[in-house]
Design a protein around this nucleic acid. Structure first.
Lengths: 168, 168
DNA sequence: GACTATCGCTAAGTTGCTTAGCGATATGAC
DNA sequence: GTCATATCGCTAAGCAACTTAGCGATAGTC
């Protein structure tokens, strides 16, 4: 059977409104479509990275923080991931079990520990990220300065709209 | 205590590399920083929308599909959300319990049902989305045509880089 | 030195997923 | 037409990952 037939929303019923419920929203320019696509693809990419490292979503986000910020305490991880400290303990347990991090004593505060990402794991993740990050970086580098300025200003406005919407 | 002190990564240890593990990655232009920020803010915004509708993440994503595509069958939801059909049943159970959707018989196939989003719920979500979507749409509309073209082309390249990275 | 706060952790309970399998309905071969 | 097979939504049982509550150890404060 044709899988795309189903994807085209064959389940609309006559009695239900045929127009998608959001039809009143401006369909959006291709720019806004692209932005949404980037957000979606970014989630897809995260899933793939999670498979590569063989970790679940929470643990992957923890790894991202560790890779970007360097060693962190479990309590810091819990606040960054917005999970309980108990859950953070389990995150570190799992990451340690598969060898992505190690627990080390905190040099100054003996209540704390330090969660250190293993270099092999960081390299593995970097290897997967590099084509994407590098490709985008290259695309940016290839931009004429005026174009880069235009894009930077526009994206800044988008960020501001997000922040404003989140403040309200 | 100063909460920012912790945020600045105070847990680095002397024996662990002081440089964040990803320091070898080009720090990235402000454009790439903005792109990442948009992805992150988008996730934040989704969380907030989930709170507004009082549903968990999976159920919110289901609602997004229903709002954008109109009524769908549980099996279609299961494939879109990449969950089992059993989980899709539970999603619909929960959404129905809080009144966001209703189950209706499929007019042509009596095995199927149709999950129809309730208009009140769609309106509630739209109300929360409008400031953001509208604000961004306005920002796009205010762009000179040449700038819009520049941005559209660039974002298209970013999308392509994502797709290429996901193909590999 | 006593009080209080914070650290990481364990235990018990909850939520949301999975796989397996069921009855009902649709579809295709003959 | 009839029968075999596939698909639909659903239930049941098990598992993974979260929560809250609370504990012992350590740090900071008076």
């Amino acid at each position: 059977m044709d899988p795309m037939a189903e994807a085209r929303n064959p389940d609309s019923t006559p009695q239900a409104s045929r127009r998608p419920a959001f039809a009143d929203f401006p369909e959006g320019s291709s720019i806004s479509r692209e932005l949404r696509e980037i957000v979606k693809l970014s989630a897809d990419f995260e899933r793939r990275l999670g498979r590569t490292l063989a970790v679940n979503h929470t643990d992957l986000v923890a790894m991202q923080h560790l890779m970007e910020s360097g060693p962190l305490s479990p309590s810091e991880l819990s606040s960054r991931l917005r999970i309980s400290t108990a859950a953070a303990t389990m995150v570190v347990d799992r990451l340690e079990a598969v060898g992505h991090v190690s627990r080390q004593p905190h040099p100054e505060d003996r209540r704390k520990i330090v969660v250190v990402p293993r270099e092999d794991s960081v390299r593995l993740a970097a290897q997967e990220l590099l084509p994407l990050v590098g490709g985008v970086a290259q695309a940016i580098a290839d931009l004429p300065a005026e174009d880069a300025a235009v894009i930077e200003r526009f994206l800044g406005e988008v960020v501001e709209h997000y922040r404003a919407a989140l403040d309200g």
